[in-house]
């Protein structure tokens, strides 16, 4: 199937210095490949949000495999499939039995499958972080195992707008970014836009903020935080300042229509819940 695979298989174990692996684990084939790479490599670096946390495709964990297949191959508006054909893992062709990689029940981050030495966060990883990781690895100046390259502090620490934050932020009004003309010289959160900078690892240089967009959290949580979305949700809930429960519900419905997508955009597979619970364990 993939001629490169046999080439790699022939290499001696531990003969690759560093493997950068990107993408989450979606198919049985991915598991095979990354296990192979792990065997052959001295150092494995998870590269980018998908390998690090599961990434945006990880939001598929909110659906069952059959829901995903049905939607992708039959119901999506751009699909033309009059016979309703859906993929199967094996197929008897005249030439013999054909095998396709199996789709896994959940999207997984890389370290759910193999031992990972370092992580380069980001969707996409920023050049400065990639360079830093390469410099460290090439110079042999290796950080402790498990290090996520980037800052050890949240984005606010390096964000220019942090100093414009008022003494207390209590949000009376939420806004989605297209509903407000952002004052680019003031903290977005203070303007009612749910910027995830406070909960997100820094290191990117606040690029999105400089571009007029709030942080959406692609660098993931800080070392002390187990679940990015839960932390994000709890900080937002703490600073929302509505006395009236009904009003709060309405505002949240209107301005935060997809909380799972907002708070777990990059990290659902790395969260405590991992995905939708459909009974019966993994």
């Amino acid at each position: 199937m993939d001629f490169k695979k046999s080439d790699v298989e022939k290499m001696k174990d531990n003969s690759i210095d560093v493997a950068f692996i990107n993408g989450g684990i979606r198919l049985s084939e991915h598991e095979e490949m990354v296990r192979l790479l792990r065997r052959k490599s001295k150092v494995v670096v998870a590269f980018g949000s998908c390998a690090h946390l599961g990434g945006i495709p990880g939001l598929a964990n909110l659906y069952s495999t059959s829901e995903l297949i049905t939607y992708a191959f039959r119901e999506a508006p751009t699909v033309v499939n009059p016979d309703g054909v859906t993929p199967t893992a094996s197929y008897k062709a005249p030439e013999g039995e054909l095998e396709l990689p199996r789709i896994l029940k959940y999207v997984k981050p890389l370290d759910d499958v193999i031992d990972v030495d370092y992580y380069i966060p980001g969707c996409a990883p920023t050049p400065n972080i990639i360079k830093k990781a390469l410099d460290d690895i090439l110079s042999g100046n290796l950080p402790p195992k498990g290090t996520v390259f980037g800052s050890s502090r949240a984005l606010c620490d390096e964000c220019e707008l942090n100093k414009t934050k008022p003494e207390k932020i209590l949000l009376k009004d939420l806004k989605r970014v297209h509903q407000v003309k952002l004052d680019l010289s003031k903290c977005y959160l203070a303007q009612g836009v749910l910027c995830l900078g406070p909960v997100t690892r820094g290191g990117c240089g606040a690029l999105c903020i400089k571009g007029g967009m709030p942080c959406t959290g692609c660098f993931g949580p800080l070392d002390n935080v187990k679940d990015f979305g839960a932390r994000a949700l709890s900080f937002i809930a703490s600073i929302i300042d509505y006395d009236d429960e009904k009003l709060a519900e309405r505002i949240i419905e209107e301005y935060l229509p997809d909380p799972a997508g907002w708070f777990y955009r990059y990290s659902l597979p790395r969260s405590l819940v991992k995905g939708r619970y459909s009974g019966g364990g993994k």
Binding site: S152, R153, A154, L155, C156, D157, N162, K165, E167, K168, I169, L170, G197, P198, G202, L222, D223, N224, F235, S238, I239
Partner: peptide, 23 residues
Amino acid sequence: VNEDLCSGCGLCASVCPFDAIEI
């Protein structure tokens, strides 16, 4: 506060009912 990890985002000060936190 673990000052090494603190980003100064100020949300703690926002929620403190005793005004015990300053950035």
